[in-house]
């Protein structure tokens, strides 16, 4: 099978996997610029695990709700909690996130243990990063979330930038950092909960970090950091799906590994420049 035929097969047989992972990659890569620059990368790791715990919770025999609701409820609750706890000086930030991360994994394991076998396989597919079978409705949901979050972020770009650069001064200029931070984390929470349900935790965490770091290594203007990060979020899913197809690898982890190649290239450009 030629390269063209492989790409044509992906496009015709798995269009939602292709476009869904591109949209998820771009969404996570855009938000990732803030996540990386605020040095709260572990928030991404923790929220993805909280989202998976929410999905596992929704499969419990006595709960049985749509997994997306479970993922969203858990993630938004964690987001609100983080927005409070990460401002507190009583417990160090990394301790809050470390404890939440490990508790989310423990809850997930306990809840999977109590779930019927058929549904365990769905959770394991998410953990394995099997993105090939994204459905049309999942894709449109992801696209809707992408458009709404991007619209909000572009509309309030100044406020998000100011609070992220210097929260205290922003507060003195009429941008109460407490509320803007909460608003930001809520958008991250919604993006992570929806994307994790659809493309898996490895993909989401990977794309919250790797494209933003790649962009920061080579961009010299703030606007270019966002543009490059979104580009580095959009291209690896195309190459990743192609490589997963010819190497018979799971698509999610292959896509993340492809994104990492872009990081290496950016690092080399940064070194030789």
């Amino acid at each position: 099978m030629s390269d063209f035929e492989i790409l044509k097969t992906i496009l015709t047989e798995f269009p939602y996997a292709l476009f869904g992972s591109i949209v998820a990659g771009m969404l996570c890569a855009y938000l990732g610029v803030y996540v990386v620059s605020k040095r709260v990368v572990f928030v991404g790791a923790t929220l993805t695990q909280v989202a998976v715990a929410g999905i596992a919770f929704s499969h419990l025999p006595f709960i049985e709700v749509e997994p997306l609701f479970g993922s969203m409820a858990f993630t938004l609750a964690a987001t609100i909690l983080f927005a409070q706890l990460l401002r507190s000086k009583v417990i160090p930030q990394d301790s809050v996130l470390g404890a939440s991360y490990v508790v989310a994994i423990a809850l997930r394991i306990l809840m999977i243990q109590s779930s019927p076998a058929a549904e365990v396989s769905e959770i394991e597919a998410i953990l394995k990063g099997d993105i090939l079978f994204i459905t049309a409705s999942q894709f449109y949901l992801l696209l809707g979330v992408f458009l709404v979050i991007m619209a909000l972020h572009l509309l309030f770009f100044k406020a998000f930038i100011f609070v992220s650069f210097d929260a205290e001064t922003a507060s003195t200029q009429g941008f109460p950092s407490r509320w803007w931070e909460l608003f930001f984390y809520l958008t991250v929470g919604i993006a992570v909960s929806v994307a994790t349900r659809i493309v898996g935790d490895v993909f989401v965490f990977g794309f919250l970090v790797i494209p933003a770091v790649s962009a920061m290594l080579i961009a010299r203007k703030v606007r270019n950091v966002f543009l490059l990060s979104v580009t580095f979020g959009a291209i690896p899913p195309i190459l990743g799906l192609y490589l997963a197809f010819i190497l018979d690898f799971p698509a999610g982890p292959t896509t993340v590994a492809t994104a990492f190649m872009f990081l290496l290239i950016s690092w080399i450009i940064n070194r030789v420049r």
């Binding site: 610029v33 990386v36 620059s37 040095r39 100044k158 406020a159 930038i161 100011f162 992220s164 650069f165 210097d166 001064t169 922003a170 003195t172 200029q173 009429g174 941008f175 920061m216 961009a219 010299r220 203007k221 703030v222 950091v225």
Partner: peptide, 19 residues
């Protein structure tokens, strides 16, 4: 201010107008 983003001096001073 511990910043990773490549804000220029002009970008930073412009923030003074945001209020």
């Amino acid at each position: 201010i511990d910043q990773m983003m490549p804000f220029t001096v002009h970008d930073v001073v412009m923030m003074g107008r945001f209020g």
